[in-house]
């Protein structure tokens, strides 16, 4: 087990290195840099000024030197300084991250709360009216784009309840009500899309497990149907659900770009888009690195959880 974890962690390193090179390269291929983005806004173009500015930011060095400077900093725990906000990248991320984790966390809880009961019911009553209803609803959940659902929230929230998503920053502990108003609709939108996916996968695997021999045995020894479904079938149907959840964590971060911009939440997704348009290299690189690491670690945790859910699976 320990050896397996260590080898997986070691294998992460090349993936991370390749992805940092890709992000770094993509950013340098993008037309324009931070200085151009700033100059066009502020004071026309002045070639000499621009040169001085570039030198200050270290943008005049060759790309390879810049890359090793950056990666050297990362190894020492220094993620660089955001050009645009003029603050350390870690500080910028730390202010944006709580909103995004809150959004994603509530979304996952909502998604599971909808998906698990509906998925189980729809598998137990296969091909009944309940099953058809649940499946149609889940496909609607997948098919309606995030931003459309979000806009519907805003339109009918305003028309029916006079509610508008509050702008600006509302911390969870300082202004819980404002924070909830800002985050909850977004979480519902994200959760709805997720629950559709989870429900479908749960239904399929439940249908498969309900046909297994040990389910017949459990019924034969006289267990109640509820025990058969939840103790015996449900636990064994969880593995694909966990896999999907792992994938969704990555999608949540991507999907929250949309939800964050619809509801005006200052999270990681929005910071990322702003940083890309401003060509704020250190910030974009930092956020990309963070997302990649989060996804890789989640994938590892997902794989490890398999042996917990199904003791037949062992890692050596």
């Amino acid at each position: 087990m320990h050896r397996y974890i260590i080898s997986r962690v070691v294998l992460m390193v090349p993936t991370i290195i390749v992805l940092t090179i890709v992000t770094f390269g993509l950013l340098r291929i993008m037309p324009g840099d931070f200085v151009v983005a700033q100059m066009s806004e502020a004071r026309g173009s002045d070639a000499k000024q621009a040169e001085i500015y570039r030198h200050e930011l270290g943008l005049d060095a060759p790309a390879v030197t810049q890359y090793f400077r950056w990666i050297g900093g990362i190894v020492q725990g220094n993620w660089g300084t955001s050009f645009w906000q003029n603050k350390p990248v870690t500080t910028v991320i730390r202010t944006a991250l709580p909103m995004s984790t809150e959004l994603g966390g509530i979304a996952i809880v909502i998604g599971l709360m909808i998906a698990i009961p509906i998925g189980v019911i729809s598998a137990v009553y296969q091909d009944g009216p309940l099953d058809y209803l649940a499946r149609s609803v889940s496909i609607i959940g997948i098919s309606v784009p995030n931003f459309f659902l979000g806009i519907l929230f805003i339109i009918y929230g305003a028309v029916w309840f006079g509610w508008f998503p509050p702008q600006g920053r509302h911390e969870l502990f300082e202004d819980p009500w404002g924070n909830l108003q800002q985050v909850l609709p977004g979480a519902i939108v994200l959760g709805a899309a997720q629950s559709g996916q989870i429900m479908r996968i749960l239904r399929t695997t439940m249908l498969e497990t309900l046909r297994e021999d040990y389910i017949r045995t459990a019924r034969a020894k006289g267990l109640t149907e509820i025990k058969v479904v939840f103790r015996h079938a449900f636990r064994n149907a969880l593995i694909p659900v966990v896999t999907i959840l792992g994938f969704q964590l990555a999608t949540i971060v991507g999907g929250s770009v949309v939800v964050e911009s619809v509801f005006g939440i200052n999270g990681i997704g929005r910071t990322y888009i702003d940083a890309v348009t401003q060509r704020d290299y250190p910030l974009v690189q930092g956020i990309a690195l963070l997302l990649v690491m989060v996804t890789l670690i989640t994938n590892l945790l997902v794989d490890l959880s398999y042996s917990f859910l199904d003791p037949r699976i062992r890692y050596t």
């Binding site: 993936t15 992805l19 990555a250 991507g254 770009v257 990322y272 890309v276 348009t277 990649v292 996804t295």
Partner: peptide, 20 residues
């Protein structure tokens, strides 16, 4: 794996900003 690890939209945004 490496392509999939990257959040889809995040990479799409990066590519679109290169190509315009």
């Amino acid at each position: 794996d490496a392509i999939q690890v990257f959040p889809f939209l995040v990479l799409a945004i990066a590519i679109v900003s290169i190509l315009g």
